[in-house]
């Protein structure tokens, strides 16, 4: 699903000829790949740094904070038999994601706040994977609420944490420690991996979780 090309990683383009955010398209043995820019995507950054990302082609994914779909477009390349529900509450960025979803048959836009998972219960089923990148002070609680409602047992969650969005004044290390404690205390998750995103992002951490 993901190939390595020297220092880069790339995904096989689900819609040949389409570049989503200005990334390079390259051909190998007649197959077109989209280069995954680690500076534009936190999932991309963790993959380049070698974190596991146990996404399967047939997974159902709930993406909180999908924005215009930079990262989601690569997950869409990977989900050849799956589906991704992308939630964002900002109309301007979600507008771009709707346009992207119209070109890719495995993307579903949800215009709502991730704070209110009951708002999109009408369409989102139980999922195998949650990706969260919302940069909000209460993002641990957002994650927990959504996982309780939507994540299957043993399903995975990938979470990007930006220290400054949670507490501008505290030391990133402390913010991350506190975040992990909050996630553990919920009793919902086991923490499989954590990783800092330097040099691609400053004061960011990514976590890979598994639902108990």
């Amino acid at each position: 699903m993901i190939i390595r090309l020297g220092r880069n990683i790339a995904t096989q383009n689900l819609v040949p000829g389409q570049a989503v955010y200005g990334e390079d398209l390259i051909k190998r043995k007649g197959v077109e790949y989209r280069v995954w820019e680690p500076r534009r995507s936190k999932v991309g950054a963790t993959l380049v740094k070698g974190m596991k990302f146990p996404l399967r082609e047939n997974h159902l994914v709930l993406y909180l904070g999908v924005a215009s779909g930079t990262t989601a477009s690569h997950l869409s390349d990977m989900l050849t038999k799956g589906m991704l529900f992308g939630v964002d509450f900002a109309p301007r960025v979600l507008r771009d994601f709707v346009l992207l979803a119209e070109t890719r048959s495995n993307l579903i836009p949800v215009f709502d706040t991730a704070n209110k998972p009951e708002h999109y219960r009408w369409v989102v089923p139980q999922v195998d994977f949650i990706v969260q990148d919302v940069a909000q002070p209460n993002q641990a609680q957002i994650l927990i609420k959504n996982a309780r409602m939507f994540l299957k047992k043993n399903g995975h969650a990938f979470v990007a944490v930006k220290s400054r969005s949670i507490d501008v004044t505290a030391k990133p290390g402390d913010v991350f420690k506190q975040f992990k404690q909050e996630v553990k205390a919920s009793g919902e998750f086991e923490i499989l991996e954590d990783i800092r995103l330097e040099p691609f992002e400053r004061d960011h951490m990514a976590l890979l979780l598994r639902k108990k």
Binding site: R95, V98, A101, E102, S105, I108, V110, F111, V123, P125
Partner: peptide, 22 residues
């Protein structure tokens, strides 16, 4: 069938909501 249908309906819902908002 459920997923395909969800996608079509969600796109319509999101478009209408964004239109109202913007």
């Amino acid at each position: 069938a459920y997923l395909a249908r969800s996608r079509e309906v969600s796109i319509a819902v999101a478009k209408a909501a964004i239109k109202k908002h913007l």
